[in-house]
Every structure is written in C-alpha cells, then in structure tokens.
Simulated assay, not measured.
Amino acid sequence: MRVLVLGASGATGQQVVRQFINRHIHTRILIRKSAVLPKDVLENPWIEIVQGNINEIKDGEMNHLLRDCDVIISCLGHNMTVKGIFGKPRYLVFDAITSICETVRQRADRRVRLILMSTIGYTNTLSGERNSIGEKIIMSIVKLLLPPHRDNVKAANYLIAEIGRKDDQIKWVIVRPGTLVNHDEASPYEVCESPVRSPIFNAGTTSRTNVSHFMAELTVEDSLWKKWESKTPVIYNK
C-alpha cells in the first residue's frame, strides 16, 4: 500500500503523516520548498517527499505524483492570512480534487480511495441535512465573505454530485471535524452520519490527532471504509 498526503506540512496533515509512520505504511507527501517539517519526518524511511505546489502541477506531473498510490488524503487548506484567505488560488482544494479525479479517470487500470478533510460548516443537502434559518443566514454570509469556505463547499459538492457513488475508479469519504483543537494524544471520539449539534452555534470540538487517527483507520480497515464510503461523516471528541 502507498498513500499520498496533500497538505502534509499543515497542522492536521503532519498528524496524518505520523499515523502512517507508526503503521509502517509507505507515504508520499507533496510539500512546498518553503515548508517546514520535523526532522524525524523528513528523514523517515517510510516517507517519500515530493516538492511542489499542488496548484502549479501539470497533467503529466500529476500522473507521476499519483503513481502507485492506493489512497489519497487531502488535508489542504488556505493559510489564515489576508493573502491566504482572499488571494489566489481561490479554489485550491477544488482544483486539486478535480485534477486528481480527472487524472485517475484517464488510467483505466487505477483504482483509488480518496479522503477529503472538509468542515463541519459543510451541509450535505443531498443526504437530507437541513439548517435552521439562523444557520442559513450565517452560512450564506460566511460563503459570501470567505473564499476558503466556498472552496470547501465546492470540493465536497464535486465529489458528491460529479463522482457520486457509482464511479468504479474513485471511491471517496468526506470527513467533517468539529472545531479543530490540538491534543498531544488520541482520545475517545464519536463518528456520526450528520451533525448532532448546530454547526454554527454549538459546533463541538475535534482534536487533529483524532481526525488523523480516523482517516488512517479508514485507510487500513476495510470494514470501516465500507461503512463510510460515499458518505460525509462528522467526527467529534467525546
């Protein structure tokens, strides 16, 4: 098995990489030249490092990046700076996901599992989820004013509506954590099909360690994957 992790230098992405190191799984990571990673990750024999920006990769380079990968995990996100929020690329996550899917579809011999880290702020209306009037108003404002949220919504909608449940080559899970917090170790957590609390007024918390553990378990446990395939599970700390 080989896993590709995008956004590996981010706070959650680093936790995901460590999960695979601990499981002795070959992991390819794409990082910018300016990215900073701990020495034990950079020099780990289970880690293969590719340098580059996902939004600048051409078709041939994407095909090379995806070679031999069975699972692709996206922890991509915008930097929380003025430039990162309002500057280009506006659709970092969406463009990466569509490029990956188009590349995979060009190779009839390739089957992949794709795990997208999204947000509790995404509402899966196709599964029957609905927001209150107050939540709709706030989410509309957030979507209007914050491009990263629009990016997350567009990427999730693409997997649900365009790839769907019947694509033979690409199987996917969209993971929606609550408000992300930093914990040193994994702790008990629960996974639900839909939010069990208000994503706006009572979003709950989820440690990055727990998110990374759940995504790693999706990768290695077939029964867990089958349970959540083509779904948008929500994960909360207990």
Rank of each mutant, 00 (worst) to 15 (best):
V112T: 01
E129T: 03
T103Q: 03
T125P: 03
Q106A: 10
T123C: 14
T125D: 06
I100V: 12
G87I: 05
C101V: 14
V104S: 09
G87S: 09
K88N: 14
P89T: 02
I100A: 06
I100Q: 05
I115K: 01
T123Q: 14
K136M: 07
A96I: 01
E102A: 11
T98W: 05
I115F: 07
R113P: 10
E129D: 09
M117K: 06
V112F: 01
N131I: 01
L114S: 06
K136S: 09
R90N: 13
E135S: 06
R111V: 05
C101M: 11
I138Y: 04
T103S: 07
R107C: 10
K88Y: 05
L126E: 11
T103E: 03
D95G: 09
M117Y: 06
I141R: 08
F94N: 13
R107V: 10
R113T: 02
V104Q: 08
I100L: 07
Q106C: 10
L92D: 13
I137T: 15
R130N: 09
E135Y: 02
I138Q: 11
G134L: 08
D109C: 09
N131W: 00
I133C: 15
K83D: 15
S118N: 14
T125L: 01
A108W: 02
E129Y: 07
R107L: 10
S118E: 14
I115E: 04
R107W: 06
E135A: 07
K136V: 05
G134M: 04
I115Q: 04
I133W: 11
V112N: 02
T123M: 11
E135W: 01
R105D: 15
I120Q: 14
T119G: 10
G121A: 10
R111G: 04
I85R: 06
S140M: 07
Y91N: 13
I137Q: 11
I133D: 13
I97T: 13
K136H: 07
M117D: 12
I97M: 13
T103H: 02
S118T: 08
T125C: 06
P89R: 03
P89V: 00
G121P: 06
C101Y: 08
R110S: 09
Y122W: 09
L126A: 09
G134V: 00
S127H: 06
F94V: 02
Q106F: 04
R130Q: 10
P89W: 00
